[in-house]
Design a protein around this nucleic acid. Structure first.
Lengths: 342, 342
DNA sequence: TCATTTTTGTTGACCGGTTCACTTGATACA
DNA sequence: TGTATCAAGTGAACCGGTCAACAAAAATGA
């Protein structure tokens, strides 16, 4: 077992004080070129690596960012298993943080108190909320004044946190408009956790707006909402739609994963996509290119969403730029094979 | 900004020494019932939470486990984006660690030195290798004597680390046998990173064994290997197979994701699955139930793999049971709709 | 030349815990 | 009664850094 090299070893080796070594390591210019060189050489030779734990303790800065995702039972398992939207975002964050020497804790939701304790115990430098949480969580965190960035959030929390999102209402509008333009008049809306996931509410608004604009009536029977496994929820909604007979000819699903599940149900019952049902998904996940048929979808650069939120929080942490720049990322309709003219 | 409650506050509040508080918190029985009660009450009242950073520093124990995944450019993004096999395993780990008060760092591979520094800088309590790494990595880590658990590993590293895996050769054998039993004689093998991912090598062995047993000749033209995005690699392999004409009637793909890509290519060129090509996947990821057609696949309980590796490393850390219990998890053929009789 | 400022560097307390060596008072033993 | 044993608890050093206050030497200025 090798002995760890500490700042004291470097100091002793070069005959200089700990503070001097510390200053050099941290780029604080208070040292002559001569000594600086000597110390840097020693650091190389001894392979000295500053201990993050010690730094955390004295600086109260851990170089760890917490990412929190709302979950039902505090377990991230379902997220990792099939919420490719979230994992792609995580990929974007990881990419940025890795290059800035930050590490990442990913956590499902806990109760507000545990949550706060976690932040304090771990000396987290920042928190990214990936999705929507109960108001009590924000209230608890607020007292800690730790940098926070929100993703996909539409609530006000008394504090003006930067918010990375897209125009979800516009997304819903474009998706629905596309179907209307293709001649569809009876369009079903299928969402997920409408009451708790605000983006789907907005997308529903966009859907309604598009219908109204085209003078199409809103049929409540065609509005679906579900909770749980995305694939399975989509599958079940597909079945329910089939039970309704031929009330609809098109579907706007608020997620590509949902769409895959829906298509599965339809095809299993002898329907064709897009011949019998045109479907628009959302997110443009990788799967949407390889699903059968490939999905027409609203592309939001999911990876980029992760990248931007990471950069935003790093800016706050390192330069204190806390002007809450909320960013609306661009979206785009990608037409593939799951939609056709009626 | 609230002030953090420290062990000194608790000590002062109860008129007892820090050591005593520390002992009580850590369950070291050196205190009278009376004092213990008094202190526990104070802890509740003040909401004292021991600071993990401080504990890390003095105990040299961080309650953080590092999970490392081999990546090409040190970025986990591709993994998070489409390697659902890895993310499902991560889900299993997270589930266990969360309940034991451990947090998780997930990292792509770095060079061996950086890697080692990371472990030291962060005082990691253990390391899980998810996949196969260059020998130099193990050599570097070996000098640190930190608990290590391997997943899907077939190499010996001079040290006997616990290894969680399945019998991959058997998996390849069962998959291929299934196709042979269905009357197929010209079966293609499609793998991923054969030189660096040892599980695929083993699965290839199983494939060869099954062929030999059935007195079928091995056709090198039908052996495919690729690198990069799983979906895309599968897609490209599908195209290549088509170029070969009707040399094969069945495919064994070493991953469900690969299989989805393959099927996509075949269907886009007018072929039918399973009518023209029967396909067996591997892993039984969620997607295999919702793909079109649903995939016949070798089921390994991926989630459980994560759970077991997490439990194993916790055992080593907390009870020192370092008897390297390597576990071979059971596998099972799941017959769905992507295979049929010739 | 002497006072002042600047450069370069050091010392020691501190971050919030743990741990080893030690004290004190009570109990047991003989 | 004297000594050994034990339970309950304390003090101070320590983990590996940072930082404010201070000090010595060098440079500046008048």
């Amino acid at each position: 077992m090798e002995k760890k090299v500490t700042i004291r070893d470097v100091a002793a080796y070069t005959g200089v004080s700990r503070t001097t070594v510390s200053n050099i390591v941290n780029g604080i210019n208070k040292t002559s070129e001569e000594t600086k060189e000597k110390v840097l050489k020693a650091i190389k030779e001894l392979n000295y690596q500053p201990d993050f734990t010690a730094i955390s303790l004295s600086k109260k800065k851990s170089n760890i960012i917490g990412v929190v995702i709302p979950t039902f039972d505090d377990s991230l398992a379902p997220i990792f298993r099939e919420n490719h939207y979230y994992t792609e975002i995580l990929g974007g964050m990881e990419y940025v943080f890795k290059n800035h020497n930050y590490d990442l804790f990913i956590s499902g939701m806990m109760n507000p108190i545990e949550f706060k304790n976690w932040i304090q115990k771990r000396n987290l430098d920042g928190l990214i909320f990936l999705g929507l949480f109960p108001e009590s969580v924000y209230n608890e965190i607020k007292t800690l004044d730790i940098p926070i960035v929100l993703i996909d959030n539409y609530e006000k929390h008394g504090v003006n946190y930067p918010n990375i999102r897209i125009d979800d209402e516009l997304g819903g509008y474009i998706a629905t408009k596309h179907l209307i333009d293709r001649g569809h008049k009876r369009i079903s809306f299928m969402g997920h956790d409408l009451k708790t996931i605000s983006v789907d509410e907005k997308r529903l608004s966009g859907y309604i707006k598009a219908l109204q604009e085209a003078n199409l009536s809103l049929n409540e029977d065609l509005l679906f909402d579900g909770t749980g496994s995305f694939y399975e929820v989509g599958f079940q909604m597909g079945l329910k739609l089939l039970e309704l007979g031929d009330k609809a000819t098109a579907i706007f699903a608020t997620s590509d994963i949902l769409a895959v599940g829906i298509i599965k149900a339809l095809l299993e019952h002898g329907k064709k996509v897009p011949k019998d049902y045109s479907i628009v998904g959302f997110d443009d996940l990788v799967i949407s290119r390889y699903s059968i048929p490939s999905l027409t979808t609203i592309s939001q650069n999911v990876f980029n969403k992760g990248v931007l939120s990471a950069q935003t929080i790093l800016n706050i942490i390192e330069h204190g730029t806390s002007d809450p720049v909320s960013i609306n990322l661009p979206i785009e309709l990608i037409v593939r094979k799951s939609t056709s003219f009626l």
